[in-house]
């Protein structure tokens, strides 16, 4: 029993990231509505961020902010094992903010498409393009 629990705990993060990625990919390909596609794109992106942050976790480690550092130089030796890996956090922090900026561009494109064709459904837009 304990064996199964440890296996599940060791892999659950990866399984969930794969599940979210599948959900996002399916939404991008198969959903008909443009805003739903954008939601799927964001879910895909969050899945990647989840994967990166999962890589940075260390057992028994604390957040990557050094303790007792406020007094200047009066602290001891820092051990790397005591702090979570900061590198994935840095990469993903900027990725989230860039993600919201690209989300703005995607929504602006959707608004332009709506102004042009008066619908957000992909098949209706394609039908209108074929008619022209």
């Amino acid at each position: 029993m304990a064996d199964i629990v440890s296996t599940v705990v060791a892999n659950y993060n990866y399984w969930i990231y794969i599940t979210l990625m599948m959900i996002g990919l399916y939404a991008i390909i198969a959903k008909n509505n443009l805003v739903k596609k954008i939601v799927g794109m964001n879910i895909f992106q969050t899945a990647i961020i989840l994967f990166y942050v999962s890589i940075g976790v260390k057992k028994g480690a604390t957040i990557p902010i050094l303790e007792h550092a406020h007094g200047g130089h009066g602290y001891g030796v820092v051990h790397a094992a005591e702090y979570a890996n900061p590198l994935p956090h840095v990469l993903m922090l900027t990725a989230i903010v860039v993600g919201v900026a690209t989300l703005g561009v995607a929504l602006a494109l959707a608004i332009r498409v709506y102004n042009e064709y008066n619908t957000l459904e992909e098949d209706e837009i394609l039908a209108q393009i074929r008619e022209e």
Binding site: V53, S54, G56, P64, A84, H89, V90, V97, G99
Partner: peptide, 23 residues
């Protein structure tokens, strides 16, 4: 929960705040 406080802070302000408003 995973200890990535900076990422969580960014997601709380960006993902749950501003991107919902954009949508």
């Amino acid at each position: 929960v995973m200890g990535a406080v900076d990422v969580a802070f960014t997601e709380a302000s960006v993902g749950a705040g501003v991107s919902t408003v954009f949508f």
